[in-house]
Write a protein that binds this DNA or RNA. Structure first.
Length: 418
RNA sequence: GUGGCUAUAGCUCAGCAUGGCAGAGCACCAGAUUGUGGAUCUGGCUGUCGCGGGUUCAAAUCCCGCUAGCCACCCCA
């Protein structure tokens, strides 16, 4: 008999099986609990957005330029699977009139994001983020607030050893002059930079600072630093953010090379890394201020600050740290009946369900095999039903731990299991 | 988009340098145990050897292409 090739999961997409789902649930619940404790409300936005919305947010980033999951729908619309949450949340903030309510709107979202890149460890084409946004927030204290929120979340899921890196990248007032200084510094060195950096020099000079190619490294230490060229407002904000963090007892490392490539990002940028290997490719949480985003999307200029936390990575690090999540058994009670007693078995299960989680083994196997199966499922009790027992509306209730077995009338099963 | 490694039973893998009957463990099913789990023992089932082509009397094994997975780069959470 010719067999067809089994159809596997789409590239870069993975299933979360029940065994892993237990850990994910604790990480997600911690996120929601911490967010709500800071006054943030959950919301959901569509996974599909207009390609224009995503591209408005920055055609220069790889996430948009070459990693966008896009397609045309049956109506000829150009749509994209969202690569991150912020653009959609900002859109929803205006469309849903949150801009007319008390400011800032404190929001969180947990859901899947998509990037069409090559899968590898800790990176998938569909991945999940815990996203926090405070839209309409002017105060730098809110920048510190969301950093504290992220730190609290990571601590609550059991990650003691995380590193926070912090920087500021100025705003539309002070950054242009700084970028000119940066270009002036790098122009004479252009021949010594690698190809991408030679292009970045004119288009996105900030990115020169976070380049990791060895040949570009020697020039960084002497490059002008934005923190020496902030305008008064940005300098004051920079001080306040750190004052709040210091008072909260949150440790951080200033990293002058931590940047964002897009114009609408302003001032605060930060990233959390797992302890030990603080590579550049395994950030657990990354965020910052984006005062220019609303305007880039075509709305009234509105400040905002937020972060995205990678659930795939956080759960992975939590699992690697040795945290044991004991999975709950699928059912506390398993009902085993002789062949032909399916209706009676379902009835007995229905009665037991008043007190416990209950599954029925309907498979045509030997009783021995069903007992083995119930044992492997981790059932605490087994209810055995034979022909004569079914006639008398009784059943054998067996405690799997002690091995003790008693006959119980159906109507008293729930009581016996309570 | 670039590179390295990999693909054989439901799962983990051996077999491949030197071409010659498709293997092991686990899991599953049955029995030892006259309806009763965990330990032990016995038996049994499961294969287009990733897909397509080439070389050869003969290919899981050698060659080419493709696809997928893992890992790394670019980049990102």
């Amino acid at each position: 008999m010719p067999r067809t090739e089994p159809i596997k999961a789409v590239r870069g997409m993975r299933d979360l099986m029940p065994a892993e789902r237990a850990l994910w649930r604790t990480v997600e619940r911690a996120a929601a609990r911490v967010a709500r404790s800071f006054g943030y409300q959950e919301m959901v936005t569509p996974i599909l957005e207009h390609t224009d919305l995503i591209e408005r947010v920055g055609t220069e980033t790889d996430a948009v330029a070459k990693e966008l999951y896009r397609f045309e729908d049956r109506g000829g619309r150009n749509l994209a699977l969202r690569p991150e949450a912020t653009a959609g949340i900002v859109r929803a903030y205006f469309e849903g009139h949150l801009n007319q309510g008390p400011q800032p709107a404190r929001l969180f979202l947990i859901g899947p994001m998509f990037r069409y890149d090559r899968p590898q460890k800790g990176r998938y084409r569909q991945f999940f983020q815990f996203d926090i946004e405070a839209i309409g927030a002017d105060s730098p204290a809110v920048d510190a607030e969301i950093i504290e929120l992220a730190a609290t979340w990571l601590r609550e899921v059991g990650l003691r050893d995380v590193a926070l890196e912090l920087n500021t990248i100025g705003d539309h007032k002070c950054r242009p002059a700084y970028l000119d200084l940066l270009r002036e510094y790098y122009r004479p060195l252009k021949d010594k930079l690698h190809g991408d950096c030679q292009r970045r020099l004119e288009t996105s000079p900030l990115r020169l600072l976070d380049c990791k190619v060895p040949q570009c490294q020697p020039f960084k230490p002497k490059a002008p630093r934005i923190t020496d060229h902030l305008c008064d407002e940005c300098a004051a904000a920079w001080v306040l953010v750190r004052r709040v963090l210091d008072a909260a007892g949150i440790e951080y490392r200033l990293n002058p090379y931590l940047v964002r490539g897009l114009d609408y990002y302003t001032r605060t940028v930060f990233e959390f890394y797992p302890g030990g290997a603080s590579g550049q490719q395994d950030a657990l949480v990354a965020g910052g201020r984006y005062d220019g985003l609303a305007e880039a999307e075509g709305w009234r200029s509105t400040p905002g600050v937020g972060f995205a936390g990678g659930l795939d990575r956080v759960t992975e690090v939590v699992a690697a740290s040795g945290a044991e999540v004991i999975p709950e058994p699928p059912a506390e009670v398993v009902v085993l009946a002789d062949p032909g007693l399916e209706v009676e078995a379902a009835e007995v299960a229905r009665l037991c369900r008043a007190a416990r989680t209950v599954a029925v083994d309907y498979e045509p196997k030997s009783l021995r095999a069903k007992m083995r199966s119930a044992n492997k499922l981790g059932a605490r009790w087994v209810v055995l039903l034979g022909e004569s027992e079914a006639q008398h509306h009784v059943a054998q209730l067996k405690d799997m731990a002690s091995g003790a077995q008693v006959e119980v009338p159906w109507k008293q099963l729930a009581e016996s299991l309570a």
